[in-house]
Design a protein around this nucleic acid. Structure first.
Lengths: 144, 144
DNA sequence: GGGATAACATAGTAATTTAGTATGGATTGG
DNA sequence: CCAATCCATACTAAATTACTATGTTATCCC
């Protein structure tokens, strides 16, 4: 039960992207240089973020990535869902080895795990990228 | 970001234990039979639960496990901490490869992840075993 | 006391996931 | 055309997870 590095890297990358001049694309190479992240890995993550509609890209030389949404419409949950595929878990499903040992139908454990997941999703969805940025930038100014 | 099977199994086992006659110990073998869980694996988990003080054991024939606390003092968080060791994560620590790329000191990301972890811990600590039991038993009665 | 039962302890292994690398193709600016 | 950059997929290495195996110690009951 922890934040995956995929999520951590994606947030770091998006933070750099968001702090960058919004008129000009920033390349993966530049983002990785600034945050010391593995380039090819980040390429994969950023393609997923694009697929999810959070960012957009410009091909070729002088290309790179740009934000595709307002920062206050992108949540940590969106980022996690985009990069960290098997986020949702199915409990007590047909193929579960404990299916026949479920207590009640729907199984009480099933219900419990689903309620927990729901809470977690709501929580992560409530944390928006603009708040994250504010937090980071504020820290930055306070210390420099 | 999901509930580990360790946690799931531990909760299932504890539920059986809690529903069992509190005067007589119940063995791992019996618990595993009721919930179709791997015995040796459960032994390990139950030893951890004992080490954490949630349950107690009686050696030898006719032995087994008993609860060691009131159900309303045991939280899902306690269970997770007991069985799922590396729950706590350290971000932006000395040995992190991104240490020098942290933004601000303390790093804004660091602060963010820690706040998130804190929220998660508070949440899991708020879910008590008695509530879990009530939920399961209620379901059971409704359906039988 | 001896055998059965059950907790205790640790080592080993198999499966899965995570994190990352490698290789190459497609697109664009200059 | 060529360098920069995104796109796509396959592969691999490391770590974690989920077990299994083997044996020990403690207790009950005959």
């Amino acid at each position: 039960m922890h934040i995956s590095t995929k999520t951590e890297y994606a947030v770091r990358g998006l933070a750099e992207l968001a702090m960058h001049d919004s008129k000009n694309p920033i390349s993966i190479v530049e983002i990785c240089a600034k945050q010391n992240l593995p380039q090819k890995y980040m390429e994969q993550l950023f393609r997923k973020l694009k697929k999810a509609g959070l960012i957009k890209s410009i091909h070729g030389a002088k290309g790179g990535y740009l934000m595709n949404q307002d920062l206050n419409t992108i949540s940590l949950g969106d980022i996690m869902k985009a990069v960290d595929e098997n986020l949702a878990q199915k409990y007590c499903e047909e193929d579960s080895p404990h299916r026949e040992f479920c207590i009640g139908k729907p199984c009480g454990f099933h219900t419990l795990w689903n309620e927990i997941e729901e809470h977690l999703h709501e929580y992560f969805d409530s944390i928006k990228l603009d708040e994250i940025l504010k937090k980071i930038i504020k820290k930055q100014y306070l210390e420099i």
